[in-house]
Design a protein around this nucleic acid. Sequence first.
DNA 1: CTGTTAGCGCGTTCAC
DNA 2: GTGAACGCGCTAACAG
Lengths: 357, 357
Amino acid sequence: MSPVTIRDVAKAAGVGVGTVSRVINQHPSVRASTRQKVEDAIATLDYSPNPIARQLSLGKTLSIAVVAPFFIRPSSVERLQGVETVLSEANYDLVLFNVETQARRDTLFRILPRGDSFDGILIVTLSPQDVEADLLLQVQVPVVLVDAHHPRLNRVVIDDVAGGHMATQHLIDLGHSRIAYISDILESPFRHEGASARRFQGYRQALAAASIPYRHEYYRQDRHGVLQAERLAHQLLELPAPPTAIFTASDTQAIGVLRAAEQRGIAIPKQLSVIGFDDIEIAEYMHLTTIHQPLFTSGVEGAQRLLELIRQPSVPPGRIEEFHLPLRLVQRQTTAPPPASAIDIVDDGLDADLINY
Amino acid sequence: MSPVTIRDVAKAAGVGVGTVSRVINQHPSVRASTRQKVEDAIATLDYSPNPIARQLSLGKTLSIAVVAPFFIRPSSVERLQGVETVLSEANYDLVLFNVETQARRDTLFRILPRGDSFDGILIVTLSPQDVEADLLLQVQVPVVLVDAHHPRLNRVVIDDVAGGHMATQHLIDLGHSRIAYISDILESPFRHEGASARRFQGYRQALAAASIPYRHEYYRQDRHGVLQAERLAHQLLELPAPPTAIFTASDTQAIGVLRAAEQRGIAIPKQLSVIGFDDIEIAEYMHLTTIHQPLFTSGVEGAQRLLELIRQPSVPPGRIEEFHLPLRLVQRQTTAPPPASAIDIVDDGLDADLINY
DNA sequence: CTGTTAGCGCGTTCAC
DNA sequence: GTGAACGCGCTAACAG
């Protein structure tokens, strides 16, 4: 049993509750001798303050909500790790809110701003819509977006367009011209308003810059996941003029492509190059070439910014900041020059089904 | 701003706070007409109850703590997924406590039982010591262990001995006799008091049953992790009579072995068989043969049991339950019969450095 | 059925 | 320097 309250301690120490409170909160104005008495009482009674009551009184909760599609995006977990490091060190509780469906996403955006349950909210890989952002802004709760966007919310992001460009350029540099792109749904059922869409832009820009026409048939999308990407890869590989390289919007999807290739007996990277995005831990084990983004760091930065926001209650306008993280190509073993046999076919295939950028 | 309280609603609806509270909590005894008035007021004021205040009043927190070595054990994350599913559906907040060091582990076990911050605690892959269990029992907080043990605490577990036996037997059935075992430290710096140790037992039992002498040099341990296992594998592979098969206490460690083999140009499974344990998601992508345990399900079961415990305040003695989950071998592409060349060497190597079981 | 009041445990004025 | 009283927002028990 632990229903020993501050009052019990006060009684035991022969002082008032106010004094006990001061001792607990390191308040200077307490005589050393009485402080000692109180501390003794605390020790013998094995007292510890009730956090809930403290919260109610203080109006703070010392806990922050972290919202993300954790289990369908391995990258979220790596970001979470960064968040956890910062939060636990700052003695904040981390309350996890996982999102897997559209419904859940909407519910959370409606519920989270309510009540004063959290001192701050960290939203990962989920971009709020205007009305949702309004709600957040309205209740004045500190919010930071990680890998997500909204013009009126602070955020930690990367340059997705540049990333898409970088990946595609790598393939072009290797000699590829039949380059496909697989991504999750751009119209974003998750209203992510997508990183994938911006990477797609980078992809098209790189293609255009190299005078490689954009082929609509080389672009495929589906819900995010290994299996979905695997299916899309099969479609791509069955094309009359299949791509010699595939760029995917995430490493998870790249794994799907790798699986499809394996099932078809297509050698990687000899016959097909694959490049992913994110550089999640597993990418290394699978020797996947990919675009590295600082996942752990994004969590750290996001959490730190949130803590800053919480500590300095800036005036309502509060300057919105967009913090950019660097990207870099990590070349491993899934990309190589296209097979000689494929290069010949290039010109043939180009005429049909071709859309200029 | 959202400092609209229950009192504001009462005033606006022209009723007392008690009535508003009843409406909120679905209490039956409220006339439909007044209920309507209150609901209107709630809607126009956009009111929502302050959870903290509610908690203080109720003496409940509607949140449960989940403690685990999340980021060093991918299996924890998969278990977490099951936990999250149950908890979010039951409307409980999930507060995450990550453990990476011995110090953090000890702190958590000391802090967590304090205060009435959580309605329940779920401890994953971390076994409390007797004094720690005492504390937990003393404060009467509902606790469930998942993949962890303590005689006086409810738990969801697997039969690790059987699992170790199963893995080893598979190797024996394939014709191996030079079978090594890699695990994390059995004396457990994390005081896990080990699944790894029990799997080790199963390993030795299977060996003994097949009349294969136990060779101490074939057993290696180090902190849990890919890199550590990779180093251990190198040691094993440099032995005069290297093993033809390696059983690891976790898939994470198996990956380390795979990497070591790759670095040495050893073909898997032709020249070396590898079998892991857990069947984490990545195991499938890497074609790893392993012992499958229901990770997601363990989280679901653990969370459900915890919720039961919370709902039915059983008398202090409360029957302790141990819930067992099934195991099964998942054969993929990292195990095969030993190479013919190795079979000859077997008898030679056996004489030296040999310890009978 | 419904308004009123007494806590829940703690932080924080205020006077002393 | 320290004790007493009030308030945080809500629920529950008690009158009416």
